[in-house]
Nucleic acid binder design. Structure first.
Length: 969
RNA sequence: GCCCCCGUAGCCCAACCGGCAGAGGCAGUCGGCUUAAACCCGACGCAGUGUGGGUUCGAGUCCCACCGGGGGCACCA
């Protein structure tokens, strides 16, 4: 048997110790007992206002009470088990929730599971075991590990996204989105313009002729199938044949957000290829402006807000139409219309329709560098298009910066001066952004400049620069030059002025208009996997999707013999997705009566992405058992609605949402989108789902490698300080190298919560995690530091209980003045730190108070009870135990958090620092109420000050009564 | 390449609106308790805040440049 030095030998120690010492064994006994009691009593049942779930005593909440909704990011029940980094966020929310409850808020805190997804499916593929079995086992294991932490969750509100009852409502929301269209001109209740409306209203307007179809056809002339197609085109959830990210290695298509910048899948790191495939999309782009603008309504870290703004990528500019010699016209998008006079060529994406026809011969003036060695534009363009189409995203990424392209033979006419511009095609212009075509201004854009250098195209500067400015694009502000024609001159204007003037000129002449473009693309919503929500739609003879009626929900997954999608070699770009659900003919082909009599339909064989379930789970916590609605309107308003408490704000939302920053764009953007659709349709009362977002840091760990570079078990490493003060790390007598990073099995540095429960107990573990540092910073785990938190709780225990007899030792005598001051100072400080979510400093203040109490012969009951209550959010089990031993029958979970008496916070005297020339030269004990004049006089009279002034005249005295005087000579 | 966060004692970290650099913990040293040791109790802090400039009566805190660590974005016109 090998001894683990991180784990003290509990059994050997207890025999020599007093019976009632707060040892790990006693901690464990206390913790398990209280966890059972809390469960039996329903201590943490959150009370709904009348009509929902009552609290543990069967009482409902006053509808006017202040609600507080705390949430953790939805965990995925992994089979790997937890390490000590995982619970950090759960402990933080638990501490906050317990604190808020003691402050009088009606707190709702629950935890469900995001249980669809790849790992369970992949495990199922390997073992042949149904993913539901794996998932449920993992959930049970995770619930066991988390229960041992003593989290004050409402267990009645837990669920998994894989529950058939939950899937029903996920599918119901999908149908709401499917049955909607975006009316960009409709006025919202909140005064803004643009909102989702039921598709039936669009159909009615089409039928009545009050709204024209986009293509001008008459509704009356359309067949039923054509009408269906016309409506399907407008839906917020729609099927389209468009370029998608196909990942052969995973056998599924992926959303843009799931693909990394270098063209690989975020999960699995497989190559991703562009393929035209028929897939489901969500029209999230309709909400681009609202998703960007409403970031101002919520209390989120600036980092996450800027990541979302970046992802949405709104940019303002102009569309400009250029005539092409020979009759066509190309529209470009630019954010710099002020540089039009500097355009010396044009570039279109290789996929641009202009290239479907190109001149047969190179025009006059064609330079050798432009042709790529081809005899004609037709050949050159065909070759470049083929080359570009064959490039993978990975290759494209690797080539970024290196400019390739070819002249198309087309010449464009610059609308401001009639100059003929060669039109190139190059893959640095993307078909998917703007119009897929740009006017190239090498004098004002670095990419264009690089291209101009490579292809020998002239440069015209439109922004002035001082003599000696090096060549290259001028991208900053400055005075405009070289920019005038008969009807407009931008010369001398600043860049912003010139933008406005040029845009106005273009609009006036019908050559262009001001416009806004977005980087955000519609959300690709179908996956070719088994373990996800089936789409609640079927297809008829015309291949158009038809929604199933709500009465047919949920559509459950069929039992299939094989859960695996067809996967391919990761680089097999020519392969096509083949969903596992398609292998079940009995399920796919159904006879249904959808109002036209029984007919044969085909089901959709795709499933929804993992994000679907996590887009709305916060709503289900509020009303987990509702069979008639995803959430009742009353409960939604009480827990989540606008102004539901003093800090909720006009957009409403979850009061505190804690999770890692890795979901900054994906989950948080998707969920905001769904919430806004539900808001438009009247199903929720606020515009935003999450009011305050908090990103916790990560718990990192040291790992050690030996001379071969192999990892050695971190728990066997000891630290040695040499005579010269240098530190080396040694394992088994051999020096090893330390590195800092993640905790992981392969790094041999994993510490688990189970080990901590065993060696210290859950309360010590909680206190240590909270004491390590600010919640939002990452910090290294150090098992040997945990003992500090254990000593704190042991000392607290000893301040109340005699270790040998088990008797409560507190005295009913009144506390001394000194103790009262220490107590009330601590109460005021701890409250402030807890309110600011700084448990680390709150713990420091509690330790200070506890150390003071330790110095007393007997601890006064008033002080003991107060500190027990203040410790309760952090170390709830030992606090409950002490509270009970102090003679209280009920749990302290709902006891009021102590309030400081101002009288004990006022100091009798304060130390005033006297500085001469900014250096501290004397200290004065003065009353806190002293006036500036009196303080200055006192300072000037101080002998030490007189000595340092040395007769010099005081030029200026900075007085900040009562703490500081600074004398300047 | 661009943007964001973080650098304070051997280690993890405090320091409010710019006002005495130290709250708390670990490690360490000394003392007490003990036959002895562990536990426990008590005491002990010359690090001037990554580096270099600047603003200010006064800078860990504000500004500029750089160095180190972490993260995000990256041909988006």
């Amino acid at each position: 048997m090998t001894e683990n030095p991180t784990t003290p030998d509990v059994t050997a120690r207890t025999s020599a110790e007093p019976t009632f010492r707060y040892t790990p064994a006693l901690a464990q006994e206390i913790e398990l007992r209280w966890q059972d009691r809390w469960a039996a009593r329903g201590t943490f049942f959150a009370a709904d206002p009348v009509g929902g779930l009552p609290d543990g005593d069967g009482n409902f909440a006053d509808p006017s009470s202040s609600s507080f909704f705390v949430m953790d990011m939805f965990p995925y029940p992994s089979g790997a088990g937890l390490h000590v980094g995982h619970p950090l966020g759960y402990i933080a929310t638990d501490v906050t929730a317990r604190f808020r409850r003691m402050c009088g808020d009606n707190v709702l805190h629950a935890l469900g599971f995001d249980a669809f997804g790849l790992p369970a499916e992949q495990y199922a593929v390997q073992t042949g075991q149904h993913p539901r079995v794996t998932t449920e086992a993992n959930i049970a294991n995770m619930q066991r590990q988390l229960r041992r932490l003593g989290l004050a969750h409402d267990p009645r509100r837990s669920f998994a996204t894989t529950d058939s009852d939950y899937v029903r409502w996920t599918q119901w929301i999908f149908l709401q989105i499917f049955d909607s269209w975006y009316d960009a001109d409709a006025v919202r209740p909140d005064g803004g313009t643009g909102r989702a409306r039921p598709i039936a209203e669009l159909e009615a307007e089409y039928a009545a002729g009050t709204r024209a179809l986009p293509d001008g056809r008459a509704w009356a002339d359309l067949s039923a199938s054509e009408r269906r197609a016309a409506l399907n085109d407008q839906r917020l959830a729609y099927v389209s044949d468009s370029p998608v990210n196909w990942c052969p290695g995973l056998g599924t298509v992926l959303a843009n957000e799931e693909v990394t910048a270098d063209g690989r899948s975020e999960r699995g790191n497989f190559p991703v290829f562009q393929r035209n495939l028929r897939q489901w999309n969500m029209r999230i782009t309709a909400y681009s402006d609202r998703l960007a603008d409403d970031l101002d309504l919520i209390d989120w870290p600036e980092k996450v807000r800027s990541m979302q703004r970046n992802w949405i990528g709104r940019s303002h500019g102009a569309k400009v139409r250029f005539a092409i010699e020979g009759g066509q016209e190309v529209e470009v998008f630019t954010t710099r219309p002020d540089t039009l006079f500097g355009a010396t060529f044009m570039v279109v994406a290789p996929e641009h329709p202009l290239l479907d026809e190109v001149p047969a011969e190179w025009p006059d003036g064609t330079r050798d560098t432009w042709t790529g060695g081809h005899a004609s534009p037709v050949e050159a363009v065909a070759a470049y298009r083929a080359e570009s189409a064959a490039k993978t995203a990975v290759e494209r990424q690797a080539d970024a910066g290196r400019k390739t392209g070819v002249f198309t033979g087309h010449l464009a006419v610059n609308p401001v001066n009639g100059a003929l511009l060669p039109v190139f095609t190059a893959d640095y212009v993307l078909m998917g952004y703007g119009t897929g075509a740009i006017m190239a201004v090498p004098g004002g854009d670095e990419r264009d400049y690089a291209f101009a250098q490579a292809f020998d195209v002239p440069v015209i500067y439109t922004v002035d620069a001082p003599e000696g400015t090096p060549d290259g694009a001028r991208t900053g502000d400055g005075a405009i030059i070289n920019s005038s024609n008969d009807t407009i001159s931008l010369d001398g204007l600043s860049v912003p002025e010139a933008k406005a003037a040029m845009t106005a000129w273009l609009v006036e002449r019908g050559l262009g208009e001001a416009t806004t473009t977005y980087r955000l693309r519609d959300w690709l919503f179908s996956r070719q996997r088994y373990w996800g929500e089936p789409f609640p739609v079927v297809y008829g003879d015309d291949d158009q999707p038809i929604a199933l009626p709500v009465s047919m929900l949920p559509v459950d997954l069929p039992e299939v013999p094989d859960y695996a999608p067809r996967t391919y070699a990761a680089d097999d770009a020519a392969s096509s997705p083949e969903p596992p659900l398609g292998r079940n003919e009995d399920w796919v082909n159904v006879t249904l009566d959808l109002g036209e009599g029984p007919r044969q339909y085909r089901r959709d064989t795709n499933t929804m992405p993992n994000w679907a379930g996590s887009c709305w789970y916060y709503l289900r916590y509020l009303d987990p058992t509702n069979a008639d609605a995803m959430v009742s309107a009353e409960l939604e308003r009480y827990w989540l609605g606008p102004e539901h408490n003093a800090t909720a704000g006009e957009a409403g939302g979850v009061d505190l949402y804690v999770g890692g920053v890795e979901h900054a764009v994906l989950h948080l953007l998707y969920a905001r989108f769904w919430h806004k659709v539900l808001f438009d349709l009247g199903h929720v009362s606020g515009a935003e789902p999450f009011h305050k977002l908090f990103n916790q840091g990560y718990i990192q760990a040291y790992a050690y490698t030996d001379e071969r570079g192999a990892y050695v078990d971190a728990s066997t490493v000891t630290e040695e300080t040499g005579p010269d003060g240098t530190v080396r790390y040694v394992a088994n007598g051999v020096e090893v190298q330390r590195e800092y990073g993640k905790m992981g099995k392969s790094l041999k540095n994993v510490v688990t919560p189970d080990e901590m429960y065993e060696a210290y107990g859950a309360d010590t573990f909680r206190v240590y995690e909270m004491a390590m540092g600010p919640l939002d910073l990452s910090r290294p785990w150090n098992t040997r530091d945990v003992v500090g938190s254990q000593r704190f709780l042991q000392r607290l225990w000893r301040n109340v209980v005699d270790e040998t007899t088990g008797q409560v030792t507190v005295t009913d005598d009144a506390p001394s003045e000194e103790t009262l001051r220490a107590l009330h100072r601590a109460i005021a400080d701890v409250r402030a730190e807890m309110e600011g979510m700084r448990p680390n400093t709150a713990i420091a203040k509690l330790i200070t108070l506890n150390n003071h109490l330790t110095s007393l012969d007997r601890v006064p009951r008033a002080a003991a009870e107060a500190i027990v209550l203040m410790v309760a959010p952090l170390a709830p089990h030992v606090a409950e135990e002490l509270w009970e031993r102090l003679g209280h029958e009920r749990s302290l979970a709902h006891e009021p958090f102590p309030t400081a008496d101002e009288a004990y916070l006022v100091e009798e005297t304060v130390t005033c620092v006297v500085q001469v020339q900014g250096k501290v030269r004397a200290r004065l004990e003065v009353p806190p109420t002293i006036s500036d004049t009196d303080l200055e006089a006192a300072a000037l009279a101080d002998p030490a000050v007189v000595r340092f002034l040395d007769g010099r005249e005081v030029r200026k005295a900075v007085v900040r009564a009562p703490k500081l005087v600074n004398l300047v000579v």
